[in-house]
Amino acid sequence: MATVAYGTDRTDEAARQAAFDAAVAADERIEPRDWMPDAYRASLVRQMAQHAHSEIIGMQPEANWITRAPSLRRKAILMAKVQDEAGHGLYLYSAAETLGTSREELLDKLHAGRQRYSSIFNYPTLTWADVGAIGWLVDGAAITNQVPLCRCSYGPYARAMVRICKEESFHQRQGYELLLALSRGTPAQHAMAQDAVDRWWWPSLMMFGPPDEESGHSAQSMAWKIKRHSNDELRRRFIEISGPQADALGLTLPTGEIDWDEFKEVLKGNGPCNEQRIAQRRRAHEEGAWVRDAAVAYAAKHGEGKPS
């Protein structure tokens, strides 16, 4: 799109800042071509990139079980879910691109380890019950985080989140149903479900980020209305709703404290699967190169798809 050039003297800058502040204060949405502070743009790119990366890295632990799903029904459900995660990644990458950062650049940064994805996906899926625990707890925590993002001050991000939240509900319910079937099954199946919940509970609580007093970006993000609630507030909400859900499953939630040292280690790259996840992502990207090249060659031959 063509942009109209304008001067950048100090008065203009102050007026634009005031217009931006007023829009945020009035709960209006900021749209791609509006003026916005550089730090607001950078913060959004960081958060949306991390979010998009999490969606596509998150395909790996679940895809691990597609070939071993116990029935055709469960296999079809799991494939649909993993496909949704790819879709969510694409919604978010295209929303991030409205800020002037290309998808290619974001993927390069992910592959180079310069941008993060959620620490939760650095844990392994050891049993079939883990697929259920991910749906119930990991997607449940994600929904708790994401519903307020539907009212985020940046329009394209908020719109992407509306679409994602609609689809996440299926993810959570299929996981819950899967765990319920196991919990009501044989003693061995019940034990498998309980073991999965025991392992995924703490990492799910870590998904809300560090405690408020240690969260570097929170205050500014809340002032900009990118974020609407603090990490601890959302974590508390999730714990409250999970208790009765666990009771209905006939499973128990672990008691104790979050091990923040473990969280820091996983963030540093020392989780159980950090290397495996990023290596797999790079390999998938490289091995898909011939498909992308073929599509380009076909488009060139038929004279379509002129470069933008």
């Binding site: 496909q83 694409l90 295209s94 929303a95 599509a295 798809g305």
Partner: peptide
């Protein structure tokens, strides 16, 4: 929304998915 594709036909198919 938007998406990347090499040509219109692929764009349509990707949009469907």
């Amino acid at each position: 929304g938007s998406l990347h594709a090499p040509d219109a036909e692929m764009a349509l198919r990707n949009a469907r998915d």
